[in-house]
Amino acid sequence: MLIAALLAVMVTMGLAIVRAVLGPSVYDRILAANVFGTKTVLIIAMLAFLFGRMDVLDIAITYALINFISVIAVLRFIEYGDMAAAEVEPLEATDERH
């Protein structure tokens, strides 16, 4: 049962990678990276139960926090074009077709 769940999450990881690779817009890639981080948290939690090592769950929690903060930082970058200042011109964010 756990193994089936692991493989199912792996499939969704693959789909997230496909979206991150293909794009086309910036937001597709941000969402793909965010989804991928969430799937990593799930994978590590399931590995913890599979191997019976509950201390690994702490890492899953750290990943969730880092993922959250990274997404906020990335979105600030897209919004302001800078990490700190708000008065800079925003980047154009939609036409990223190759």
């Binding site: 997230a16 991150a20 910036v26 890639r29 941000i30 793909a32 990276a33 981080g37 990223e96």
Partner: peptide, 12 residues
Amino acid sequence: RDLFAVVMLFGI
């Protein structure tokens, strides 16, 4: 060639 996408992929 889009470095922003590259940064996202580095995260992955």
